[in-house]
């Protein structure tokens, strides 16, 4: 077997994208350790998770939708709406924190369901429907309040400031636990349940999935519902970090989530994704932000530019992979 063939095999492998992401993360982290004092501390690594817990959950949610070849750009607004509703309910109605959380989660579920229903039943473009969802959620946040509402609920504050020590000097927050749990459960669901396999089948080829007798409509709606739920869960975690509701929370989070997912190996044409990979997609964004914080002289907009160029790199890589696969298939 020639070298070229082996290379083609490697590129064709399911985990090639995942491998590239991990190697990239490793390189970035190594550069950080070499350049900055204190980068090697365990807490720096844990902070990556603490700062990006909400983004991890949002990325899991969008991966479900990207898998079926759809898109959801309402995530950031739903996060903001969740924060605002939680803050409003806790501060002005004195409802219990647990009940409030359950209510906002149901709200997210319903939001996702309605979007999925419109997209599936009326054959509307996912982009437009979720665009309307984005407008709606962000506008509704402003209708509730245009000012910041601080969350002073004691239980909520206690949960927010809880530190869970994994190492003698390294701790994570409650939000990270939720994020990791979401990631693990979703990975299992996607891999080992009927629903998960339906999603992969649907993303691979909707026509064949339909002809095989899979419930394509229901699966589609379910995927958007999962995404809506994840958005509101991300909102809960986000509000644990921010402890407030504010109309401009999480602006553009959907784009961060999409780019993390893509960097983590999700094919935007649907059908291919590996959730642990998307985790590293988020972590890469986190590392770049940490770079900028450690450096202290670079401006925050560099994050955006670097992310965009990484995004570009991965998208181009994906298109080359797809071309490669087609060539192999035609050779066979």
């Amino acid at each position: 077997m020639s070298f070229k063939k082996i290379w083609e095999r490697i590129v064709d492998s399911k985990y090639f994208s995942f491998g590239v992401t991990i190697v990239l993360f490793g390189i970035l982290y190594a550069i950080g350790i070499l350049n900055f004092k204190g980068f090697s501390k365990s807490q720096v690594f844990f902070n990556l998770f603490i700062d990006n817990a909400a983004l991890i959950i949002a990325t899991v949610g969008i991966t479900f939708v990207l898998l079926i070849g759809g898109i959801d750009i309402s995530i950031g607004s739903v996060v903001a709406l969740t924060c605002m509703v939680s803050a409003q309910l806790m501060e002005n109605t004195k409802l219990d924190a647990g009940i409030v959380t359950i209510l906002v989660l149901i709200m997210g579920l319903a939001f996702g369901f309605i979007q999925g229903f419109l997209i599936t039943k009326f054959n509307m473009q996912p982009f437009i429907v979720t665009l309307a969802g984005q407008f709606f959620a962000r506008g509704l946040t402003c209708v509730i309040s245009t000012d910041t509402i601080n969350i002073t609920n004691e239980t909520y504050n206690a949960i927010a400031s809880a530190r869970i020590y994994l190492l003698p000097k390294g701790f994570i927050s409650a939000g990270v636990l939720i994020a990791i749990l979401t990631l693990i459960i979703s990975t299992i669901v996607l891999r080992y349940t009927k629903f998960g396999r339906n999603i992969y089948a649907l993303g691979g080829n909707e026509q064949s999935a339909l002809l095989m007798g899979l419930p394509t409509g229901k699966t589609k709606i379910a995927a958007y519902t999962v995404c809506g739920f994840c958005s509101s869960l991300a909102g809960v975690v986000y509000s644990l970090i921010m402890l407030s509701g504010y109309p401009l929370h999480a602006v553009g989070m959907e784009m961060d989530a999409i780019s993390s997912s893509v960097i983590g190996g999700t094919l935007l044409s649907g059908g291919v994704a590996f959730l642990p990979g998307t985790l590293f997609g988020v972590l890469i964004q986190g590392v770049i932000q940490t770079f900028i914080t450690f450096n202290g002289r670079l401006s925050a907009w560099w994050t955006r530019i670097v992310i965009a160029s990484l995004l570009c790199l991965f998208i181009v890589m994906q298109s080359l992979i797809t071309k490669n696969r087609k060539r192999i298939n035609s050779n066979n």
Binding site: L118, K121, M124, L131, Q134, G139, T146
Partner: peptide, 22 residues
């Protein structure tokens, strides 16, 4: 700030009108 709510309703309405199944 509240303008988007109305815009969203208009968007959905227009798309519904365009939708064949609707």
């Amino acid at each position: 700030e509240q303008l988007p709510v109305y815009k969203a309703i208009v968007v959905i309405f227009i798309c519904l009108l365009q939708s064949e199944s609707f």
